[in-house]
Design a protein around this nucleic acid. Structure first.
Lengths: 353, 353
DNA sequence: TTGTAGGCGTTATCAC
DNA sequence: GTGATAACGCCTACAA
């Protein structure tokens, strides 16, 4: 059937050991024999069997990505970023999406055993500290994304949701909008919680007198639509609405249009994520840009780092900053974009935040 | 280090054979011992080593996906579709994107040897019949997507670009637009070629007298913008513009707006793909919907089929139909949407088209 | 029912 | 420089 190293050895009249040496360029073989072996191998279209090689080498040259779902811009961009960087490290990518919560994720994690050299895990409701404690294979280098678990063994990389939200509120306030309402995301989502916290902190500091107006959504367009209707039904209409993600902002936009409100004339609007659609709605949506592909790239780099020096339980926390991108939806087109810098916190396990 | 079947065997005071039997549920082991073994395995957090198991089992429970790139809606939706169906077959997904052409793809294909049970290949310029002949591991079940190569060993699955374009032209003509211009895609892209062919055929049949107006683009938004400017610069302005994909249509839309033209009042516009953005531009874009996730699902099903009965060189050609979705950009909102049916051609290797 | 042993395809460690 | 041969972790005859 499929041809093995033995076939090459027989054909080239050498031992399998020599074939291995020649093909792996480890030296210890004459240029002449190496040449001959390479020719035979090429002629026979010999390709080493990955699993067999991994077994003895203890390396798969593959990293795993465990995601809750593959739906939407965020995930595809993230995978793209990871993949791009993985390639440049000479690594392959095994993706696994767990739709059905923690059990599913646990199974996926098990299946990765012996198939990957490291793993990137995007946190999701069921995937918390104790889950990882129980299911993460020991000694497997891993990077946690958008998670508040402080793992002793994994590196953690987060988006700076807090600073991003804060910056956007500052921008809105600077534009003269003090009565800002917030459409928050699902409570069990880490990013959503951070964004809401950022909003609360920013309002407390930047618009101290204003009563907090927060309505709940679930990151979906329709939930944004509903939230906007709820806001519009209130007695005092907000001057600006800040949605915790772009899709909800798009939903708000729809509701505003239906209500005959001009954006930003009658009401300003801002989102979070900067998904491609944000640029194409009318008016173009001001938002907080998350450089998702870069997040993936950084995660991969972090992982590669962990993989290079195994055992070094470099549990570290990193944060990727985000910019605010000003378009038309919150009025007063301005040039600059505030940028949150990327920071890295070293091992300190204290609960500093 | 990582714990193996031997550790479980020792701890449970049985042989490795019994552990294997117990854990794989093959029977031939007392309920009592199985119970004990399972407990020990759970306590030790034993997880079989994938590579080792694959080596003897000859199965990896993994399929590979070879894509030219991971950028854009199309790829992410495709992966999603594949992944979803792969999961339901109990298979994992190894993605590999080859950015640098054929050599890159060849390397990726080699690396998959022994790591996957089957493979889905999305065609790209360098990946043609002879490439596959040379690089596709023999006996590895494979499905080709959007490709015109008639492989003897692989199943082929295509979008019905031809019928989709044809249907859209019919719709435009029915709306009273006879002077339809076409913005085509890159010449080295299979889908692009098919769409142009569909347009030519449709125009010849449905608007016989009209001179053909075709300008070239490359599927990018900016190329669409440029193409529209070129069209507008001509002596007679077209009544409708049909872009070979949505991103180019979006570019056209921008150009029309800048030229002070109302869509669809002054000029109608249609695209192809139905990417999410299509719904959010103003006016919403009429387009030909490609059910990309379904394409991925079907590809996976085809592959699973091939994997089930190995050796059966069931080279077959399948086509996935597409609908036209009518929004506001081409005038006269109508309800229904023409649908191209999904067809399957059996083994016939003749060049029927 | 259970254990022993051989082999999957490769690399690594020895001898020669 | 080259060739046996022992791992790597697992499954599966075959024997007990």
């Amino acid at each position: 059937m499929t041809i093995t190293i033995k076939d090459v050895a027989r054909e080239a009249k050498v031992s399998v050991a020599s074939v291995s040496r020649a093909l792996n360029g480890n030296g210890g073989v004459t240029a002449a024999t190496e040449q001959r072996i390479r020719e035979v191998a090429a002629r026979l279209r010999y390709v080493p069997h990955g699993a067999a090689r991994s077994l003895i080498t203890r390396r798969t040259h593959t990293i795993g990505a465990l995601l809750p779902d593959l739906h939407g811009e965020f995930f595809s961009e993230l995978i793209r970023g990871i993949d791009l960087e993985a390639r440049s490290h000479g690594l392959h990518l095994l993706v696994s999406s767990s739709h059905d919560g923690a059990d599913d994720a646990a199974a996926a994690l098990r299946a990765m055993q012996g198939r990957v050299d490291g793993i990137v895990i995007l946190s999701s409701p069921g995937v918390d500290a104790e889950f990882l404690e129980a299911n993460l294979p020991e000694g497997l280098p891993s990077v946690l994304l958008n998670s508040d678990v402080k793992s002793g063994t994994a590196a953690v990389l987060n988006i700076d949701n807090f600073a991003g939200t804060y910056a956007m509120v500052r921008h809105l306030v600077a534009l003269g909008h003090a009565r800002i309402a917030f459409v928050c995301g699902p409570k069990d989502n880490y990013d959503a919680r951070q964004r809401e916290a950022g909003f609360r902190a920013a309002m407390a500091k930047l618009a101290p007198g204003e009563p907090l107006r927060i309505v709940s959504g679930n990151f979906s367009e329709s939930s944004g639509y509903l939230a906007a209707r709820e806001l519009l039904a209130g007695k005092t209409r907000p001057q600006a609405v800040f949605a915790a993600n772009d899709m909800m902002a798009v939903g708000c936009l729809q509701a505003f249009k239906e209500a005959g409100l001009a954006v930003p004339g009658d009401i300003a609007l801002a989102g979070f994520d900067d998904i491609p659609i944000a640029r194409y709605v009318t008016p173009p949506l001001s938002t907080v840009r998350v450089r998702i592909a870069e997040l993936g790239k950084n995660a991969m780099d972090l992982l590669a780092d962990l993989m290079d020096r195994p055992g070094s339980s470099a549990a570290s926390v990193h944060t990727l900053g985000c910019d605010i991108v000003v378009r038309d939806s919150c009025g007063a087109h301005r040039g600059g974009a505030a940028t949150t810098t990327t920071t890295t916190k070293k091992p300190r396990r204290s609960s500093s935040r």
